[in-house]
Simulated scan of single mutants.
Amino acid sequence: MATTVLDPARPGTEHAGPGEPAPRGSPWILLASVLLLLIGTGGLFHANTPGCCEPPLGDGPRRTAPVPEPWGDDVLAAAEFSGIPPGIVAAQLDVESRWDPRAVSHAGAQGLAQFVPDTWERYGRGDPFDPRAAIRAQGLYLKDLRRMVQGLAPATAREEVDLVLAAYNAGPTAVLRHGGIPPFAETRGYVAQIRELAATTYAEVGA
């Protein structure tokens, strides 16, 4: 906020008559002017101090850090559509591709969400290397996987999410055939790694 200060360099000159030297200003007027200037400057510094006037956490939009900035809203949308917690959705993308939109696995999985061509043909639209398209397809696929594993009657929401993650990694057929998370070291490690990241790195996503 700007502070209006009287000109301290010319105190008292407004009453000087023609040809008369301007009287010397009172030192009190000069001191008051300097104090006003300092107060105004201090107010400006205070107003621009980082964090001084920011709304408290929870009063603003849902947070998406540390999700890369361009894709935060897409992650929240995929989580809302699929019913999977946002931290899990973000952690899964981290585990799948380390947020690299050009990632390609040895098995031919592509993009941020690592879709193989057959699965992309069913759930994806456009280019699998387009991050926003990949996250949208991830949300669609996660929702479909939730529907598939409900036949196993998961006892808790956490168990349901673990089954969905296992189905994403090993395929829904393997999960249904084993009646739960398959006894594959890769799949069990995949679920555990996503859970750990969701509880730490991505714990505040969507909070």
Rank of each mutant, 00 (worst) to 15 (best):
L140A: 09
A185Q: 14
L112E: 02
V205W: 05
P21H: 11
D7P: 02
D127L: 11
Y190M: 08
A9P: 03
C53L: 15
V116W: 03
L57I: 12
G40H: 08
R125D: 15
I88Q: 11
A153T: 05
V175N: 00
E80P: 01
F81V: 14
V161Y: 05
E69W: 15
R98F: 00
L44W: 04
T13A: 14
V104L: 08
D94A: 04
L93S: 00
P128K: 06
N169D: 01
L76D: 10
A134G: 06
T173W: 12
V191C: 07
I39Y: 09
M148W: 01
A185K: 14
F45M: 10
E196C: 02
P27G: 07
P154F: 04
P183N: 15
L197D: 07
E186K: 07
I135A: 13
D127F: 14
S26T: 05
L76Y: 10
P131V: 03
Y202A: 04
S26D: 09
C53S: 12
A192D: 15
L36I: 06
S105V: 04
H106W: 02
A47T: 07
R147N: 00
T187S: 04
A91K: 02
G171L: 08
P128N: 11
V5F: 13
W99D: 10
H178T: 10
R63P: 07
R122I: 14
G87D: 08
A77H: 05
H46K: 14
F45C: 03
A185D: 14
G17C: 11
R177A: 12
L38G: 08
F129Q: 10
G179R: 00
V5L: 10
R136I: 05
S82Q: 11
L145T: 11
P183D: 08
E20L: 15
A167S: 07
G58W: 15
L112S: 10
L57M: 12
S26A: 12
F115K: 04
T173D: 06
G60Y: 13
R188E: 04
G83K: 08
A170R: 05
G124R: 01
G179M: 00
E54F: 15
P70C: 14
C53T: 12
G58F: 12
